[in-house]
């Protein structure tokens, strides 16, 4: 094809573009320009620390919304957004029986956007439990637990348990009647185990009833222990999706 377009002289727009994206600092951050060839687009995925858990290509049926309903991805968004809102809540919250409740009450009235952050954190926590379940159902009904993805299903079950534990440990932190009695009911169930039930319950809540020790234990598990574990298993989960050949396809 003949070249029809004549080379144009410098204009303000391209001058600005050049100054913004072709300078020394920008190039030190983003080593290449916008990926607009298939090779560069694959490299953009494979060489980016945040994107490299993706495969570089995927089957065209897999981008149909009804194939996955984005449920696994949405669950991951929940985790990220819960981390962000959770960190914000941590600035205003002290996990002690004397302070916890008044901190939450103050968060709702005295802190700008405090109520919004708490609402987001709570509704997203419920949402995450729901989407984890729906994601599990989607994977099951598409037979995606079948070979070679057996182990990733097991990792998924572990993540389901971690999600429930994350939600349950967070439930206690507002230190209101809903929190303490839900956790009392929940830990009493554990206490009824046929072997070492009472001991397990004592170990979990650090006493015979839900108090200061239980609050600090649940808080520590909620803000660092369980999220770390969940992040590790999530990394394995996503990596295995890619290593096992992307989403399941009919044989």
């Amino acid at each position: 094809m003949a070249v029809t377009e004549q080379p144009r002289g410098p204009r303000l727009g391209s001058w600005l573009y050049d100054k913004l994206f072709h300078n020394y600092v920008w190039r030190s951050v983003f080593r290449s320009g916008y990926p607009d060839t298939p090779r560069n687009q694959m490299l953009a995925i494979a060489t980016n620390v945040f994107l490299h858990l993706h495969p570089t290509r995927l089957h065209k049926t897999h981008v149909k919304i009804t194939h996955t309903y984005c449920l696994g991805g949405i669950t991951f968004f929940f985790f990220l957004a819960l981390t962000v809102t959770g960190v914000m809540l941590m600035f205003y919250y002290v996990p002690g029986v004397d302070r916890a409740y008044s901190d939450i009450a103050a968060l709702e009235t005295n802190v700008r956007f405090g109520m919004l952050m708490r609402n987001l954190h709570r509704w997203m926590a419920h949402g995450m439990v729901i989407t984890v379940f729906l994601h599990m159902m989607r994977v099951f009904y598409t037979g995606a637990y079948k070979p070679p993805r057996e182990f990733n299903w097991v990792v998924g079950v572990i993540l389901l348990v971690l999600t429930l534990l994350l939600s349950f440990t967070g439930y206690l932190l507002p230190w209101d009647q809903l929190a303490i009695w839900a956790v009392t009911v929940g830990t009493n169930m554990i206490g009824s185990a046929p072997l070492l039930g009472g001991e397990t319950r004592y170990f979990l809540i650090g006493g015979f009833e839900v108090g200061d020790a239980a609050l600090i234990r649940f808080y520590t598990l909620h803000v660092i222990g369980l999220p770390l574990l969940a992040a590790i298993f999530m990394a394995v989960h996503f990596w295995r999706v890619r290593r096992d050949g992307g989403l399941a396809r009919p044989l």
Binding site: L51, L58, H59, V63, I65
Partner: peptide
Amino acid sequence: QELLVWPDLVFIE
């Protein structure tokens, strides 16, 4: 039959 993850999937995400 295949699409590139960038931009097709990244955009959906």
